[in-house]
Amino acid sequence: MIKQPKRILTLLTSVLILVALFPGSAVAQGSDPTDDDVNAIAKQLYCPVCENIPLDACGTTACEQWRGIIRDKLREGWTEDQIKAYFVDQYGDRVLAEPPRSGFNWVVYIVPLLVFVGGIILLYFAFQRWRTAEPEESSRKGVKRAADSRNSTDEYISRVEEELRKRSKG
């Protein structure tokens, strides 16, 4: 029974000492954070209840409370990173928009990169193989075909059409 008030007393004194030690920060905290300050941080967070809706756009009461917490913390002079760390502490990594780059989470970043780079390399080698497969013949043929298709298809088709028209009349 005696212990409890003693603890409260210690707490109170330490708080008083802290306040006395940092009068400057108390003044800075006086300026009220704007909605935009709150949203700037809320935008980067996701509450565990309404998954996949960023906190700044979510209309539920829970999210409103979270925004209230952000506002309070800002008022107390916390930085953006501290506030984010606070939510991670409380609710886990899932509150962040992206998995933090550590441990197993690296997998999410590396796998698409590997697949994509793998695809490009595969394609590159395929191109190389194709180019060396029958370079002489196919490329020469290709040049001719390319030239044909650019310049004379139109004329060619119109000539065929002309021919057809003549025949159908005849």
Binding site: E51, N52, R94, L96, A97, E98, P99, V108, V111, P112
Partner: peptide, 24 residues
């Protein structure tokens, strides 16, 4: 595809839920 299924994989492997959001 990977971003959509990763949260489930993460939950299975580490037990930790993560969000894969727009920046990813």
């Amino acid at each position: 595809f990977w971003g959509v299924i990763f949260p489930k994989i993460s939950e299975l492997v580490t037990g930790q839920k993560v969000t894969v959001g727009p920046p990813f």
